[in-house]
């Protein structure tokens, strides 16, 4: 039987959740035995090359590219996991929700203390750049999500427990001490 295929992505996240995936220590050797990685920053595969069993996404949707990647994952993955606070509720990036986008961009590109006051005041708007959304969206407000693993980051033990259960088709039974929002 071929190994189950896993794919991962970081959208509006800080890669902390990915660090936590790697933080399963020597169990990563078991994981490599158990599964095969497809599109993921872990192996630097950029595009899907086959259907995926479990997709894991960190970070919410802050721009148009995040939404595209998320939709591509939904299309290609049997099970989609929302990993971490940012994916589940927007997290720190969502602190801009409620502040108009223009104000955010002006703060970053005009008023930020490291901007040279003599530089022309521009806000990058190259057509190749993804468009910033009106606010940061949790993943499940855009596509259907099958499992949620909270934490900032979720602990390696939680990720391990969830992944091994899901791959064996077992229901998620998570111990109290593993479900934390921080």
């Amino acid at each position: 039987m071929s190994k189950p295929v896993i794919a991962t992505a970081s959208l509006a996240g800080c890669f902390g959740c990915h660090m936590s995936i790697l933080d399963i220590d020597e169990r990563i050797l078991d994981l490599v035995e158990l599964v095969e990685f497809n599109k993921s920053p872990v192996d630097d595969i950029k595009t899907f090359t086959k259907p995926v069993d479990v997709g894991i996404i960190e970070g919410g949707c802050s721009n148009s590219e995040n939404v595209e990647v998320l939709r591509a994952f939904r299309k290609n993955c049997k099970i989609l996991i929302s990993l971490g606070e940012c994916a589940i509720m927007g997290g720190l990036p969502a602190m801009r929700n409620g502040i108009p986008v223009r104000e955010c961009l002006e703060e970053a590109y005009h008023r930020c203390p490291t901007i040279d006051p003599f530089d022309p005041k521009i806000i990058p708007d190259d057509p190749d750049l993804p468009i910033i959304l009106d606010r940061v969206y949790p993943l499940h407000e855009i596509v259907k999500i099958d499992a949620f693993l909270p934490g900032c980051p979720p602990s390696a033990d939680l990720i391990w427990k969830a992944l091994t259960s899901l791959l064996q088709g077992k229901p998620l039974v998570l111990p109290y001490a593993l479900v934390k929002f921080d």
Binding site: S82, I88, M89, A94, P138, F148, P150, L174
Partner: peptide, 13 residues
């Protein structure tokens, strides 16, 4: 064991 609220987030200001 609330993994995600069943309601949409308000993000009040």
């Amino acid at each position: 064991q609330m993994l995600v609220p069943r309601f949409p987030y308000d993000f009040p200001v």
